[in-house]
Amino acid sequence: MLGVVALVLVLALLLVVSLYNRLIRLRNGTDNAFATIDVQLKQRCDLIPKVVDAVRGYMTHERGVLERLTELRAQATAAGTPAADRVALDAQMGGLLKGLVARVEAYPDLKASDTVLMLQRSLNEVEAQIAAARRTYNAAVTAYNTGIETVPANLVAGTLGFARRPLFEAGADERAVPEIGSLTR
């Protein structure tokens, strides 16, 4: 009788260990994917001073936007900013950049400038990379969430400290469509 109980206990322990290892693998996957987003966001951050320098002389009406961008970037790159805050700051910067690029259309001198054209392409590139990284992150998080919510892992996930993680959604700032007027010109 005692032997049977011991056997059941050992089996249960083995099951929990393998479940735990699987969940750790999934969680590391999401961490890794998040790090990839972070790298791309940092690249976009690095583009901001270049964009600001290139357009400052022309876009006198947008001075407020440029200052706000510089400010946000300083906050985001400051040491000790928590990851969650950085993501929020990046979302704001992304929205502002998008609006700015759309308004470039209104300045013929800027539109024809090679530097601005190259910067636009770099921004597009980094945006595409960020989008891909986010989708990868979402795929990893979905796999992880599914992992902790399905039987039998859902029985132990909470006890072992695995919590559901949120998916990435486009921030309100980024989703905002630039003003129609600036696009149709």
Partner: peptide
């Protein structure tokens, strides 16, 4: 590369 695959396959 998972990210690159998604970069291509938007």
């Amino acid at each position: 590369g998972e990210v690159e695959a998604r970069y291509i396959l938007t």
